[in-house]
Nucleic acid binder design. Structure first.
Lengths: 213, 213, 213, 213
DNA sequence: GATGAATGAGATTTCATTCAT
DNA sequence: TATGAATGAAATCTCATTCAT
């Protein structure tokens, strides 16, 4: 029955789509979505412009496809968490992988897609889904990882804060590719660690947190 | 009698430039930089397309002008700090004004400009200058505002962290205009307050900050 | 009665027209008719663009005015011939003045005006008039200057030949400003001299003129 | 069977380029380079405006292409001289073909290109090359064709004179298309014949040539 | 008379998309 | 399936000309 049971074997159409997305990603990073022409993408993908339309109905669909692929990849990365013990360690690894190890080009692409999402409803929907999914998974991690002293911690609020910080770090990477993202990621991890340990809760409205004196 | 009629009276050319920037801002927020045509801007500014070119040499120059105007406004806002006592209060006011009170459209424009900055060197320079200026001012505030227990705090590092968080909050506002920015700003303020009070330093590499247990 | 009897005193409008033509000439030589804008001419004439239209109804009218002025100047130059003896000497002087001494810019302007004349009927008419006038005067000179041995010479035909050669010399000056026009003008003069002396008639259909052997 | 169908078969791209140049030539003659729009050329070539840009990168490139094609055609015409005897006859045929038989429109186009050459360096280079090539070939012809009595003749100087006269004839054809070019060409041939025969050298500085008496 | 800001039609060029082969 | 020539709508920018001041 099963002709090719190997999971790595994609059907040719899927392989073509992937090739196009790879090419488009390189082009968009290099010149931005609007400045990249379909000819550019076709040349980079080593096919004819007309052929692109067999796999994607429009240029917009390519960005959408790109975003969706990223979304799926990150989601898979998050779902592959070790079931076992060191949840914070797993979180730290995820954060470092996505915010530090990923090349700065990804950050540029990210900005490009966000900017597109501010008016392309399809892109906006993908971004929203993405955010909801990651947010949910982070909240799950935080809920399970918080220590006894952090019973009052709101995992959803912390997840939202982490996402916002992550976005900010992406912006900085895109705009200042030479500045190392390490310190900011360290700070993010420090904040999460403190919150999970119950030492300091940035999302709490506790007045003690807001006093300077 | 009075030779100088009113200090608010701008020379007509300056008034025109302002009118064009206002129009462009509305258009860019509505449709993005690349999808906005010069005709759109002209119509919004109630002029003929040709006349735009008397005041700005190109479409790019309009975005640059817009960015520069914003930069100047924010910088002026930051420099008008009360000389006196409540530095943290002043910082809080600034943060709330720029991150909460400002309409969500500004955030959209911001994303647009960042995305442009990844390719347009002029835009990149404006963003870099802006970041450097604000960063410097924030560091100054933090240096003066830190309490005795926070002697080890690095004001520059904290300023960088705050900027990254602010950028992240902007991104979230642009992408999810319905989600209130308040909680994230509260968290940002809480973190700064704790750092200034010496209660918790997210930028310190102190191992205690990074331990989960 | 006569307020200002001096011939050098132009009425102010005439002076303005002259100033505009001077400016236009400089501009056209520099950049060609089509690449020169009315703003360019106005700036060069040190007046406002709108003011140009008080003196010339259109841009085309300026080229026409320029051509007409040139025509008048050359015609005047030709009519100021010494009534007396040395007609060939006078012709030689005219030829050298117009083909050698005149700056190469004039040749460029000439080409510009010819090219314009191929489709602007007003310009074409001016060029035709010009040609007819000069041709007539040259023929008159040649008729009076031919020696006894040149009784069979056709002064009109020689004039047409001279005009064509003069045009060719202008073209060469415009295209190769560095090549000295002297030799070509010398040849032109030599041909005319020979024809007037009856030594060699290039316009005659005499078979002897056409044999190689 | 026959592998190569016909030598006249051009590859389709070359055919397209030729079609565009033909169309452009008709348009430029009709309205001049600057007044002809790309839409005009496209309509004349029966293509869409955008398609022109697949074959020529700009409007300027079309004029350049036109000039180059003309140059190549004329150069080829000149190089196809009969190896054998009647060199002057060959020269006469060339002169008549290019100066009389060619339609007057070509002369208009020529003026157009010269006028462009005064500003457009690419065009200027083409004209210069053309002139150098033709000049060289003419000098070669004259060197071989001069009779024993014309040993002192400078072939290069004569070639330059002939080129200038030819240019002048072109100008006259463009400006007065109704005046037949025959007489002027006859005169040109008579002058060359006389020079080659040693009867009269217009390029020589011999005083006898310049005396009127 | 003179200014120069404003107009608006139009030019060149680009590019997403289609379709005959 | 794949190609790549072709389309044609649209975008940016220019400039001759006008007109209120």
């Amino acid at each position: 029955m099963s002709a090719v049971p190997l999971p790595a074997r994609l059907d040719p159409a899927e392989e073509r789509r992937g090739r196009i997305l790879d090419a488009a990603e390189r082009c968009f990073v290099r010149g931005g979505f609007h400045r990249t022409t379909m000819q550019d993408v076709a040349a980079e993908a080593q096919m004819s412009p007309g052929n692109l339309y067999r796999y994607f109905p429009s240029k917009d669909a390519i960005v959408a496809g790109l975003a969706e692929r990223d979304r799926a990849a990150v989601a898979e990365d998050f779902s592959a968490l070790p079931a076992g013990a060191d949840l914070f360690g797993a979180f730290e690894a995820l954060a470092r992988r996505h915010l530090c190890d990923t090349p700065a080009d990804k950050a540029v692409l990210c900005l490009e897609m966000w900017s597109e999402a501010t008016r392309n409803p399809a892109m906006a929907a993908i971004c929203r889904d993405f955010e909801r999914e990651i947010s949910g998974r982070l909240a799950g991690i935080f809920r399970d990882a918080r220590g006894p002293a952090a019973a009052g911690l709101d995992p959803e609020a912390l997840a939202r804060l982490v996402l916002a910080m992550a976005d900010g770090i992406m912006v900085r990477r895109a705009l200042a590719p030479d500045a190392p993202p390490g310190p900011a990621v360290d700070a993010l991890l420090a904040i999460v660690a403190a919150a999970l340990a119950g030492r300091f809760d940035p999302t709490g409205a506790a007045p003690s947190n807001r006093d300077t004196a």
